[in-house]
Nucleic acid binder design. Structure first.
Lengths: 236, 236
DNA sequence: GCTCTGTAACTTGTATACAAGGTTGAATTC
DNA sequence: GAATTCAACCTTGTATACAAGTTACAGAGC
């Protein structure tokens, strides 16, 4: 029962390949719709097909790729309807969590960490969009972790990870950073005030802003992102 | 886009082994805590280790088994806290769904199938507990499918499947069948009436009955179930 | 009897060989 | 030129061989 679990899980080849492939998908190195074979990946990762297959089947279950019988693999094409459904699940879980939080007597303690980050002076706010994007994710993870329901945490994390691929296109818009700070701090303060209905409404609205931007994202923008990424890489 | 997906997915060896192993776990042929090796399974399933491994890694991700580094596999031990968390997720999803249903103008049409099964005369009710258990599962699936949110359906299905291992111990109690009929029919009628708050309350209560029985289940009862199953098998 | 040690028999992780079905494209036929 | 055929080459699915690490137990030493 002690050190059996994930903590010190040494990196298998399969694990490493899984992480790398997922990162490639997030970075649009592998574009939605792209087809590829196991041998191709094996060659690129300098490994045999066995660990590659293991990684691919995990990615398939995650919903990132799909296998065609004896006919290669494919990065799962974008499906905006799918993303919107995921956003709804996020809204459902997070609003439930904040409602519960509003009834917890020790909510101030539980939220202390988040409050130091988000309810700070304007001068202390972070302006780097990549960094804020990460903080934003952690904000929402942090809320759900307060629920003390590990399965809710797992499912929520899963959903957010599947959404990450499009969320990262979100923080490029100007004004989004400031708005995020304002919305997060308001949510936290209202939780402390115990305003269950109001805060659920705020949170729903906050997430729906992201949800609505999904519709605007086109394959063209994805292609752009890829090009930008390629340039970034060559400059390092 | 036509016949690419799951429908005609022919049974791989890996797929077959996955299903068989899961069934063994459900039937308590493999008891929580049991340890076993890949070769063992391969021998029993008359296949090589390759498809066995694929199946095992899927089961691991599903949360049924865990692998110990170069030291065999184990059926994940029971953790009642885990099951209660899952029940909470079920409650959250299903209450959300019925709330939405109460606002849908065409809810009578969507629910027609369920109503013929559950809102029938007492004389037409089914009394076989295994059959009712299956109908019960389909009732809850059916509700969520009405939500038109495929991801919610998927997650809910996943959660229910993970709960199935203990839910099947539930319908043995006398009176449970009649109560299920009464509760389901009341829920359906109240949805049609559009009573969002009342119906959510009913549903929550209905699921919490199951949730509370979890606490009563002990490993001893599981052992019993296994013995009973072994007897059933030998009688065939 | 107890502790330690080393080895033999296991385990999973990875690479590779082969089987069986899918795809493609050039040659053939009309 | 257009349609068809068929073979070479691809793909994944499965079995097997080997590498590397873990476990269990017999036997030595005390």
């Amino acid at each position: 029962m002690s050190a059996v679990e994930a903590p010190a899980r040494q990196m298998n080849l399969a694990e490493r390949i899984y992480q790398n492939l997922k990162q490639d998908i997030f970075d649009f190195q592998l574009l939605p719709g792209d087809r590829f074979s196991e041998s191709e990946i094996a060659k690129r990762m300098q490994a045999s097909r066995t660990p590659v297959r293991e990684a691919l089947y995990r990615l398939e279950r995650d919903g990132y790729v799909q296998v065609h019988f004896r006919s290669g693999w494919q990065v799962r094409p974008f499906d905006f309807h799918y993303f919107e459904d995921l956003y709804d699940v996020r809204i459902l879980i997070e609003t439930e969590v904040v409602k519960r939080l509003c009834e917890a007597p020790d909510r101030n303690v539980r939220l202390a960490g988040l409050m130091t980050i988000w309810c700070c002076k304007e001068s202390q706010r972070i302006s780097d969009s990549a960094e804020v994007a990460m903080l934003d994710e952690n904000f929402h993870y942090g809320l759900v972790e307060c629920s003390k329901n590990q399965e809710m945490v797992n499912i929520h994390k899963d959903v957010c990870e599947r959404l990450r691929i499009i969320r990262r296109l979100d923080f490029t818009q100007s004004g989004r950073i400031e708005a995020t700070y304002n919305e997060h701090s308001e949510i936290l303060e209202r939780i402390c005030a115990g305003d269950a209905d109001l805060v659920a409404q705020d949170l729903r609205h906050h997430i729906e802003i992201s949800k609505n931007t999904v519709r605007e994202i086109t394959l063209h923008r994805i292609q752009d992102a890829r090009n930008r990424y390629a340039v970034d890489m060559s400059m390092k």
